[in-house]
Design a protein around this nucleic acid. Structure first.
Lengths: 362, 362
DNA sequence: TGTTGACATTCAAACGTTTGAATATTAGAA
DNA sequence: TTCTAATATTCAAACGTTTGAATGTCAACA
C-alpha cells in the first residue's frame, strides 16, 4: 500500500505515514546528534511506525551519502580448505567489536573468480581488503587498481612485503625445525620428508627449517627419502599426494621410522598409505603434520602437528587494516608491515619413539 | 590529482579528463544500448582513460539508481562445520552463470550474529536470501521484515514449509533406513545407535528411518544400546559426543558389533573411543556415519556413510531463489516449495561383516 | 527551402539517504 | 515591546550513477 515500486520501505514511506518530513525521520532513525532536539513524542511515533512497516535503511543510499561503506573485503582462496576457516574466524572476531562488516568471498582457487571477486570488492567500496592466500597469487592488474583507489590491503598466508603489501604469515622455518627436532628427540634417525609443492610459498622455508634441525641433531636426511607434492591446488589433492608418496616410500625399499609431512592432509594420506600395507601409526612409524586443521584432530590416531596460530593471524590482519584506515583518515600512508607468527608443536598420538627392531621396516 | 575527496575515481573524473559529459562516459562504460551511437573514437578515448585512472563503478550509486543489487544473501549457521561448505559451493556454482553475486555471512551459531547479519543482508538490499541452518532457527522477528520487504527466502537443511518458507533438506528417514539396512545386510544384529540432539531437526526423522528398517529386517534395537547426543551446537562437540557415547557403550557391558552414529563427526568420535580400548574398526566393530564430510573421507579407516547431496541442495536453493525473483518481476508471489533430496549410501572401510566370535565384545 | 532522420552528445531528474543551513515556534530576559 | 536562546522541524543540496528526453549537427530527400 504505502510501498514504493521498489518493494522496499523508505524514509519517505514513514514520513508520509506519520506526517513528518523525511529529514526528521532520518534524524530520528539514524540517531543523529540533532535527534536530541526532536520531541520525545515525535521520536516515539516515528520509531513505532518504522518498526511497523519493517523499515531497514538502504545501505546503498546511506553509504553513498556518508562516503563510508563500513566494509572490509575478505577474499579467501578456497573455503573448502580447512586452513582458511580459522583465519576467517579470526577476521570476524577482530571486526566484531568495530562496526565494520566483512564482505566474504571464496575464490575457489580460480584465478578468474579471484579477479572478479576482487573487482566486486572494489566496486562495493570496501574500505580495506584482506586476502587469504597461501597459494599463488601473482600480480593481478587489479592490485594496481587497489592502490590507485587508496584501499589498504593485507595478505595473510604469505610474505608479499617485497611488493609493498603488508603480510601476516607463519614462521615456516621455525615450524619445520620444530617438527624435525621433535622426531629427533623421540629417537628417530631415518626420517622421510614430504616437501610442499614447488610453487607454494610455504614450501621452501619449511624445508630449510627441517634441514637445519636435522643438521643440528647430527642427522643426515636420505635424499631418496625426500618426496615432493605435485603443484596442485585443492586441499583434497594433498591427501592424495600423501597417499601416493607413502606408496613410493614403501616401494623404495628404504627403511624409515617416521614421516614428516608437509601438512595435515598430507599426513593423513600417509597414514592411509601405511595402513594399507598393515603398518600402524605410531607403533611402526610416526607421522607428523603441519597446520593443525580439524581433520587432524578428529582422526584416529590424532595427528601430531605444528600448529599455525591461524585465528591470531586473522586478528593481526584486521588490526593492521583498521590502523591503516585510521591513518588514511589523517592523510598518512602507512608503510607495509609484516608479521611472522610463531608456530607451536602439538603432540598428539601419531608420534612416538621408533620401534625397537629396525628390521620391522624391511 | 584528479581524485575526489573520497579517494575513489568517479565518472566525473573521467569526464573532465577527456572532455566529455558524465552521461557520455556512463553510457560508454556501462555499455548501455545508446553506446552504439557514440563515436568509436570517443568510446576508445573514454575506455583507455578509465583504465588509466583505475576506475571502478560505485556499486552503491549504481544499485541505487538501477534499483537492483544483483545480490543474493547467503547466511550460514557455521562455516566451521564441514557440512556447510559444500552447500555454499553449490550456491556459488548456481549463481555463477547468472550475474548475481553471493553475499556470504557466517553466523557462528550465535543468535545475535544471525540477526545482525540478516539485518545487514536486508540493508544491502539482497534480492533474495538463502539460509543454511540444519540447526535451530526459530522465529526471528526479522523474518517478518523479510516478508514485508518482499524478499524471497529459501532455507536449506530443514523443513520450514509450515512457516511458508521454501525448504530444501535431505530425506532423513530414507537415509536412516539405508544406514540400518546396510548394517543388517552385512549380518549385524546387535547394533548400537547414537541419535542426534533433541532440538535438531534431522534427529527425529532419521531415527524413525532407522527403526523402520530394523523392524523390516526383523531386528530388535536394544534400548540400552541407544544413546543421544546432547543439545550442543558446534561441530566439534559431536565428535566429543561420539567419543563419550562409545565409552558409555563399552561400560554398559552389552555386546554390539556395529554403531550407527548420527553424523560423521560422531562416527569419528566413536572410532576414537573404540580404539582407546584396543578395538579395531571395522574388524571388531563397524561404524557408520551420516553426511559425508571431508574428515570422514580422509581418516583411516575411511568412514562408510550416508551421503547428503549437499552441493545439489545448494543448487536447488539457488534455482528457486532465481525463479522467485523472476516471478516477482511479473508481480506474482510464488508459493513456498519443498524438496527432499535423496541420500546415498557410500560404502567405505569402516563397515564390514561382524566378527565371528561374539565373545570378542565381552 | 524545409523536412526527415540518422548520428553524436548532453540535460536534468531520479534512486534513498544525510546534514549544514534555514525556518518556525515558544519562553524568558531586557 | 524587542531581543536572545532554546527547542522543534524542514529545506535543499549532495553522494555517483543511469536514462528518457532534449539538443545539436549533418546529409539526403522532396
Amino acid at each position: 500500500m504505502a510501498q514504493q515500486k521498489s518493494g522496499h520501505v523508505t524514509l519517505l514511506d514513514i514520513a508520509r505515514a506519520c506526517g513528518f518530513s523525511v529529514s526528521t525521520v532520518s534524524i530520528v532513525l539514524s540517531e543523529a546528534p540533532l535527534s536530541q532536539n526532536v520531541a520525545a513524542s515525535t521520536r516515539e511515533q516515528i520509531r513505532t511506525m518504522a518498526r511497523q512497516l519493517g523499515y531497514h535503511p538502504d545501505a546503498f543510499a546511506r553509504s553513498l551519502r556518508r562516503r563510508h561503506s563500513q566494509t572490509i573485503g575478505v577474499l579467501a582462496y578456497d573455503l573448502t580448505d580447512p586452513y582458511c576457516i580459522p583465519i576467517v574466524r579470526g577476521i570476524q572476531a577482530g571486526l566484531h567489536p568495530t562496526n565494520y562488516l566483512p564482505l566474504l568471498m571464496d575464490a575457489q582457487i580460480q584465478r578468474r573468480l579471484f579477479d572478479s571477486y576482487l573487482k566486486m570488492i572494489l566496486e562495493r567500496r570496501a574500505e580495506g581488503v584482506i586476502v587469504i592466500a597461501s597459494w599463488i597469487f601473482e600480480e593481478t592488474n587489479l592490485l594496481a587498481d587497489i592502490e590507485k583507489n587508496h584501499v589498504p590491503i593485507i595478505i595473510v598466508g604469505r610474505d608479499l612485503t617485497s611488493r609493498r603489501i603488508s603480510s601476516v604469515f607463519v614462521d615456516n622455518e621455525a615450524g619445520g625445525s620444530m617438527a624435525m627436532r621433535h622426531l629427533c628427540e623421540l629417537g628417530h634417525r631415518r626420517i622421510a620428508v614430504i616437501r610442499g609443492p614447488e610453487e607454494l610459498f610455504d614450501s621452501k622455508p619449511r624445508w630449510t627449517g627441517v634441514r637445519k634441525a636435522a643438521t643440528e641433531a647430527g642427522i643426515r636426511i636420505d635424499p631418496r627419502l625426500v618426496f615432493q607434492l605435485p603443484n596442485s591446488v585443492d586441499p583434497f589433492s594433498s591427501f592424495e599426494g600423501g597417499l601416493h608418496c607413502a606408496k613410493q616410500m614403501l616401494a623404495s625399499g628404504r627403511s624409515f621410522t617416521a614421516v614428516l609431512a608437509f601438512d595435515d592432509l598430507t599426513a593423513l594420506g600417509v597414514v592411509r598409505g601405511l595402513s594399507e600395507v598393515g603398518l600402524r601409526v605410531p607403533e611402526d612409524c610416526s607421522v607428523l603434520g603441519f597446520d593443525d586443521v580439524l581433520p587432524a584432530t578428529v582422526s584416529t590416531p590424532a595427528i601430531t602437528t605444528i600448529r599455525q596460530p591461524l585465528k591470531e593471524m586473522g586478528l593481526q590482519a584486521v588490526e593492521w587494516a583498521l590502523k591503516a584506515l585510521e591513518k588514511r583518515e589523517q592523510g598518512v600512508d602507512l608503510n607495509p608491515q609484516s608479521h611472522k607468527a610463531v608456530p607451536e608443536l602439538v603432540v598428539r598420538k601419531s608420534s612416538s619413539r621408533p620401534p625397537e627392531r629396525k628390521s620391522q621396516m624391511r
